[in-house]
């Protein structure tokens, strides 16, 4: 076991972790941050995406021990001042979700992508979200919602 200090959503948590413990297990089972979803649990579906120092990672295949001293942002921390992030707003208002299970992963992938690519086209968005599986929507509404969110972000 090794001691790690995690900076999660602006709070600091110190834990003892096994070398193989994944960030997903730490978040869900030990810190009760269950907004991050366990889908395939093998790095294929994107449901467990979180930001590690601003970069999206799949928490189900990220060992917690590698996150020592680093900043982690989960779906619980993506909103600003109690308001939903524009990507969350658009997914809700534009029908970009049905059961909602994949939505936290979609949001955590789309937010850093739009920061890097504010003028993204539909094809760019499709490519960026190609690792986020959704079994309900057929993706069209998700792509539209993210494009609308990009427009909202551009226009402040």
């Amino acid at each position: 076991m090794q001691k790690v200090k995690l900076h999660i959503n602006g709070f600091t948590r110190t834990l003892l972790v096994n070398a193989h413990e994944t960030l997903l297990d730490t978040l869900r089972e030990r810190l009760n941050l269950t907004g991050t979803k366990r889908g395939c649990d093998q790095g294929s579906c994107g449901s467990c995406t979180v930001l590690l120092d601003g970069t999206p990672v799949l928490s189900c295949i990220t060992p917690t021990i590698r996150c020592d001293g680093r900043k982690i942002l989960t779906i619980e921390g993506i909103g600003v001042n109690g308001h939903l992030h524009p990507v969350q707003e658009r997914l809700a208002s534009d029908g970009g979700l049905q059961c909602g299970f994949c939505t936290p992963g979609v949001v955590m992938t789309a937010v850093p992508f739009l920061q890097e690519n504010p003028d993204a086209t539909d094809d760019d968005i499709k490519e960026a979200l190609s690792g986020n599986l959704c079994r309900c929507t057929g993706y069209k509404k998700i792509i539209e919602a993210v494009r609308h969110a990009a427009e909202d972000l551009r226009h402040g």
């Binding site: 790095g43 994107g46 999206p56 799949l58 990220t62 992508f113 690792g131």
Partner: peptide
């Protein structure tokens, strides 16, 4: 190879 998110790791 893989997806944009995996390619970052």
């Amino acid at each position: 190879i893989a997806t944009p998110v995996i390619r970052k790791s």
